[in-house]
Design a protein around this nucleic acid. Structure first.
Lengths: 136, 136
DNA sequence: GCATTTACCGCAACTCGATTGCAAAGATTA
DNA sequence: TAATCTTTGCAATCGAGTTGCGGTAAATGC
């Protein structure tokens, strides 16, 4: 497991107080977080600072964003070695009961045969249902 | 191809002026439309009426909604016989250049082996890239 | 056919997540 | 140190989505 400092260094993002605390928070959780989640967890850090930090992280591929259909964009730390290429794609699972979003790194994404002349750049694959905790 | 009246009858949705015009508009286009798209195309129809119409259509499985990551929910008419079950899933393609969203009915969705005790209800699979028109 | 109930429509207002302008504080460079 | 660039915090704004409400139209009961 890499530390915040190592990740920021590798991704060439300057280390600041807000960036460290946001990244540490994301690393400490296994689930994707919304801006509001992070804001609530870090009450002394300003929302717009967190917002801009997330944008910076995304541009530099420290994190990736997920549209899970909950109405809020969520963010999760990229896996080590991830370049956010199509090959780094993975499914996300959104629990419709507890509103949590999981990265399904272990579920392979098949090759998608697009129509002629369409070019794949990215994908956002969200599977919805009940997570193990809510499926009882 | 079914007419608006036939579809509404089959899906047990009462036919009204707004519903007819909205459904006709969606049927006339091969691409998924946002509320704003529809609003712009139907300048004499009120936004909230269109909004409620879309909600009604969605509840009654006349249309399905797509979160393509553009920030706006888009809507497309369900294929004939669609029940919006997981088996009726299909990929959507979002063109990052022209902002259009296509239903890829012909691309099969593989079985997704979820982690133990997770239950699939729905999915939102959006592939992003360039459409044939923009990929030149 | 007429009264009553229910559903639909249009307008305006509001909610809330996302985003931006700006000035102060901090870091970097010359 | 001075000049420059970046980051931060606050407040304001934007825009998609949603709702309350009164009026109108359609369906139902008598």
């Amino acid at each position: 497991m890499q530390t915040e400092e190592e990740i920021l260094k590798i991704k060439k993002v300057k280390n600041t107080a807000v960036r460290t605390v946001v990244l540490r928070h994301l690393l400490s959780l296994e689930k994707a977080q919304s801006l509001k989640d992070i804001e609530n967890a870090l009450p002394y850090t300003d929302r717009s600072s967190i917002f801009r930090t997330l944008k910076t992280f995304e541009e530099n591929k420290v994190i990736h964003s997920i549209e899970d259909g909950s109405g809020m964009t969520k963010y999760a730390v990229c896996a080590e070695g991830c370049n956010c290429d199509p090959k780094d794609l993975h499914y996300h699972f959104y629990c419709t009961n507890c509103d949590k979003t999981f990265c399904l790194f272990d579920v392979p994404i098949p090759n998608i045969q697009l129509p002629k002349n369409f070019k794949l750049q990215q994908a956002n694959m969200v599977v919805k249902g009940l997570c193990d905790n809510c499926n009882r």
